[in-house]
Design a protein around this nucleic acid. Structure first.
Lengths: 209, 209
DNA sequence: CCAGGATTTGAATCGCCAGTCAACTTGGCC
DNA sequence: GGCCAAGTTGACTGGCGATTCAAATCCTGG
């Protein structure tokens, strides 16, 4: 029984992973059930055996991909001992294409898909809100942590700052994602740090790159 | 001949307007040719008589809508005499849902559609870049103007600031658009101004609202 | 009023793809 | 081994929607 359940879980997750990859490559709009099936090396019918509809599968795949990223991110944060370094890392991970190993570029493409869909699909809107809150929370946590350790000064509500800094990163990321030539990843990294330092109120050492 | 051409142009534009409205309401993905035709009170066939394909029509409609907005915006800017007031107005217009008359909320929804599509459609990617450059340019123009009049201090490259401020506004706008409860339009307006003042380097009078 | 081109129509075509289903396979259990 | 339930297949159905097209209709200049 345990193994049966395990089996199911694997298939389930395997499909979600395949779906996320296909969406990344072809875009939500161009993703067909059979693409996902091909990716799994499985027949199209099976996909619908595990998911009640294409729509629900797509929404789950999108949040699944984000969960994956968040888990890795979150585990990593716990190992970093200063708030400043946490912030650096968070920004590093947020810049599309800066770190090849994280495929962050793809992450952002998925975010945009989530946004479009959330505009009209209540299920996705709700999921999106959760993901978003979690992300802002992470930033706020770093700020609170930095205040505890004395790295950052007291100041505005950490939640509020999380929102502001998160939004700024979003906007910059879009620019980088779209406009590869005009706005380079490195530049985004620099600007993000500058904005964060001014909003949080810590001193930024002069240019390091 | 003049009237014939005029006729054509009207139909052409009429279709673009209808398309933009339909896209706003239903989303790019759910927009059918027949929806657009219905909106014009015309048969579906006619749409394809004026546009070579649905795809091209959609791309044109998206840029058309943005042009419309930009024209209004641009005309308005010319009438405003101080850079600071121009900036205020620009931000006011950028906040989704702050000013009902501009339907700016819809504008932003269209932007997100543009982004998604630009990720994979080269034609749209090119259009997007033009629209984006123009918008950043507008911000840079305000900054340069403010420096001429002495309202703003000299400092970083105006183009660079246009990029940074533009990106920040993008990110904030998404938050407002998605998260109506968490991040209110008024709050976005305030934050945008604060960020702009710090980046440009002018003094912001204490809270005005 | 007429010819001829520009518009407009709406029915017909065509391909595509989500979702269904009946049959087949597999693996665990008695 | 034989049985059952869970997994899996792939052919099939249905509907949808972009495009095409031949037939109206409208307009304009002559």
């Amino acid at each position: 029984m345990a193994s049966k359940t395990r089996q199911q879980k694997d298939r389930h997750q395997e499909i979600l992973e395949a779906a996320a990859r296909v969406i990344t490559e072809r875009g939500l709009a161009e993703t067909r059930i059979s693409d996902i099936a091909d990716r799994c090396g499985v027949s199209p019918g099976l996909i619908l055996y595990y998911f009640e509809s294409k729509d629900r599968l797509l929404v789950e795949a999108l949040t699944f991909a984000n969960d994956q990223f968040y888990l890795r991110f979150s585990r990593e944060m716990r190992r970093i001992k200063t708030a400043r370094e946490q912030l650096d890392r968070l920004i590093e991970l947020s810049v599309p294409g800066l770190l090849p190993e994280y495929e962050r570029l793809d992450e952002w493409a998925l975010w945009i898909e989530i946004w479009v869909r959330a505009l009209r699909d209540p299920m996705m809107a709700k999921e999106r809100e959760v993901l978003d809150r979690r992300w802002r929370q992470s930033i706020a946590d770093i700020i609170r942590f930095g205040r505890e350790t004395g790295e950052f000064p007291a100041g505005w509500d950490a939640e509020e700052l999380g929102l502001q800094i998160g939004a700024t990163i979003d906007g910059l990321a879009i620019q980088v994602l779209m406009n590869d030539t005009v706005f380079s990843p490195t530049r985004m990294q620099r600007v993000s740090l500058e904005v964060a330092s001014r909003l949080i109120g810590f001193e930024l050492e002069p240019a390091e790159a």
